[in-house]
Structures are given as structure tokens and as C-alpha cells.
């Protein structure tokens, strides 16, 4: 075994769904690595394939329609894509845990909070009933649930959205997983509660050295807690880099557009920078670069051929023809960079 291998490695992943016609490819050529203790953000707009990617890692793609049609997923160097459901179940709630976007749908309404939290402990540990209770109360305290001794006897509907999300986090953390996948953990919550939850995830990540894969459409959340970021558009990673580089020197026109359209980046009451057009549906993807129909820099080639993934050093990759060409032609890079700055400061 090598000493330094990433905790999670996704290699060239394709995920497809069976339809009445041909299978529809939803995620394409997705590669990323996550070291132990690292937090990666997966950002992208609705339908870009963020949840499908996380479900693929969890082995929870909807059956029998969803399947991994190419590539592989490795955890600690061990291939986990293609594992039998029984094997996968051992990993889930043990080495990998997930927090879902809507806590209400993932907590069972007919069981008390205490019952639901006991379940993974029963499955994955040999603790006695009394020890389980102590452990549950301890974890509820760590996530900031008031009066945990009473809450364990209550049902999900008796709790607020923020409290339910904290219960979900304790559920995910009980087995002290190495990898925590959080799918939009704060999207349904108010900012003040969001700040509490992000703070909690940050503390877990620091204290237990848990790796976190955080899925969000909010660049602010990324700035808050991620070390590195994968930006997804229409099923593909279009840019992949550390978080500072993403904000300081985004290379992909889509990333640039997203950052420039944050209201805070624009003069108050002025016209906001915006990306024209709509996100294409998976059945209507343009040929060539998927972003070509909305890209202000699109060239002929962009409409015809899918762009290669270009490395721009320091683990920064971008899938865009502008940068494929740029590597040879210096002047274009200058011009491009000025454009970026302009978009961000204007």
C-alpha cells in the first residue's frame, strides 16, 4: 500500500439513466480526488448532475434506471463502484455518510429521534443499549441540540428545519465516517441557521479530520468552508481548482459569469452581469462544448468539438477551447485575462 493515497478518487465517471429510448448520459467524464481532511465543493446550477454524482459515490443511484456507465470510484484505494449492495451497505453510515437536502424526507416520521439515531449504532457497533443512549445524547449536544434527553423521545415533525438538519448531521456523524457527503445541507434553511450548520460542519471536519464533499449552488457557501472546488455544468466538471484561485482567477467563462453575476460583485442598482440563455436539458445538449450556446467567447470550434481538459498548473484544470489555444498563443491569454478582470470589477 502506498502511504499517501487520496481518500476518495473518482476516475472518468459516467452516470446514465435508462429511458424508453437509449440510455441518457447525465454525468460525463467526471474525475476528482479528495484527500483526508479536505473539503471539496461541488457547485453548479439545478440539473447539472451534483446529486447524481453524490448518489453514485454512495451507491444509491435509483434502481433499476440509474447506473455507472463508465469509470470508477475508489475509497482509500479500494474500488467501490460495482460493489454488491450488501458490501455497499457496510460502507454507508460507516465509512461514508450523507446528509440530504431535505431532512424531512430522509428522517422517518413514525420513529422517534432516539430510535433513528440508535439504528446505525446497532448496525455498526457492539454498544449496549445504555451506551448507545449516552453516545446519542453526547452527539446531540455536540451539534447544539438543546435538551437532548427530551428530544430523543420526540418525532421529526416536532422539530424546526434547522433542528432536523442537525439531527441529520448527528445521524451522519455517529459512525465517525471518513467521508461526509452533504447535498445542499443549508439550502432550505435561513442564513442565521445556515451559519450555525456550516460552522458545525467546519468543526467536525477540523476535529475528526473528516473529509467533506459539499454540494451547493451557492458560491458564498463555497467561500465559507471549501478547500477546493469543482464547477459543474450540464453533467461535466468545467473547472477544478483550489478555492482562492476560483475566486481570484477563474478561467472558464461559465465560472467567470457565475462569479460576476453575484449581486455583491455589481454596483448597487446597476444592471447585473448575467449569463444569457438557459441551462440546456440533458436531452438537448448542444454538440461541442455544452456551454457554447451561452458563451460570449464561443468560437466555431466550440460548437463542433468538445473541449479538452487543460491543466493550467497547480492542480487547476479547465475544459475550454480558449485555454487549449492559449497555451500556444500568448497574446490571447493577456486579452482573456483583461476580460476576466473587467467582468469582475465592473
Amino acid at each position: 500500500m502506498s502511504t499517501k493515497q487520496p481518500l476518495l478518487e473518482i476516475r472518468n465517471l459516467d452516470v446514465s439513466f435508462r429511458t424508453q429510448n437509449d440510455p441518457l448520459r447525465i454525468v460525463h467524464g467526471l474525475s476528482l480526488t479528495l484527500e483526508q481532511g479536505e473539503t471539496i465543493g461541488i457547485v453548479g446550477e439545478s440539473g447539472s448532475g451534483k446529486s447524481v454524482t453524490s448518489l453514485a459515490v454512495m451507491g444509491l443511484l435509483p434502481q433499476p434506471t440509474g447506473f455507472i456507465s463508465n469509470g470508477e470510484i475508489l475509497l482509500d484505494g479500494r474500488k467501490i463502484s460495482g460493489l454488491k449492495e450488501k458490501e455497499m451497505r457496510k460502507l454507508r453510515g460507516n465509512e461514508i455518510s450523507m446528509i440530504f437536502q431535505e431532512p424531512m424526507t430522509s428522517l422517518n416520521p413514525v420513529f422517534t429521534i432516539g430510535d433513528q439515531l440508535s439504528e446505525p449504532l446497532k448496525q455498526h457497533t457492539k454498544l449496549s443499549k445504555k451506551e448507545r443512549k449516552a453516545r446519542i445524547i453526547e452527539i446531540l449536544k455536540t451539534v447544539g441540540i438543546p435538551r437532548p434527553e427530551q428530544i430523543i423521545h420526540e418525532y421529526p415533525h416536532q422539530l424546526s428545519g434547522g433542528m432536523r438538519q442537525r439531527i441529520m448531521i448527528s445521524l451522519a456523524m455517529l459512525a465517525e465516517p471518513k467521508l461526509l457527503i452533504a447535498d445542499e445541507p443549508t439550502t432550505a434553511l435561513d442564513v442565521t441557521i445556515q451559519a450555525q450548520i456550516l460552522d458545525l460542519i467546519r468543526r467536525i471536519n477540523k476535529k475528526k479530520n473528516t473529509s467533506v464533499m459539499l454540494i451547493t449552488h451557492d458560491l458564498g457557501v463555497v467561500a465559507e468552508i471549501c478547500d477546493k472546488v469543482a464547477v459543474m455544468y450540464a453533467g461535466e466538471i468545467v473547472e477544478y481548482t483550489d478555492v482562492r484561485t476560483l475566486f481570484d482567477k477563474p478561467l472558464h467563462p461559465y465560472t467567470q459569469g457565475l462569479i460576476a453575476s453575484m449581486p455583491n460583485m455589481n454596483e448597487r442598482k446597476g444592471e447585473l452581469h448575467s449569463i444569457p440563455g438557459n441551462v440546456p436539458r440533458p436531452t438537448e445538449l448542444p454538440t461541442g462544448c455544452h456551454f457554447s450556446t451561452r458563451c460570449t467567447f464561443a468560437m466555431d470550434r466550440c460548437h463542433k468539438e468538445a473541449p479538452p481538459t487543460i491543466s493550467s498548473g497547480n492542480n487547476h484544470t479547465v475544459s475550454c477551447w480558449l485555454h487549449a489555444i492559449e497555451q500556444k498563443e500568448e497574446p490571447l491569454e493577456m486579452e482573456e485575462e483583461n476580460n476576466v478582470r473587467h467582468a469582475i470589477t465592473s
Binding site: I193, Q194, A195, L198, D199, M262, N264, M265
Partner: peptide, 24 residues
């Protein structure tokens, strides 16, 4: 408290947060 809870705009931005206790 509300304004301080808003996410930062850049990873290097430092913000003093007033974390509200409990729920509404």
C-alpha cells in the same frame, strides 16, 4: 446578527459573526 450570518464573498474575507442561539 442577520447581516453577519450572510456567507462571505471571498475565502479571505474575515467576518465577525454574531451567532444567534436557538430557533425563532
Amino acid at each position: 446578527a442577520l447581516l453577519s450570518a450572510e456567507p462571505i464573498r471571498h475565502p479571505d474575507e474575515k467576518r465577525e459573526r454574531v451567532i444567534l442561539k436557538g430557533d425563532v
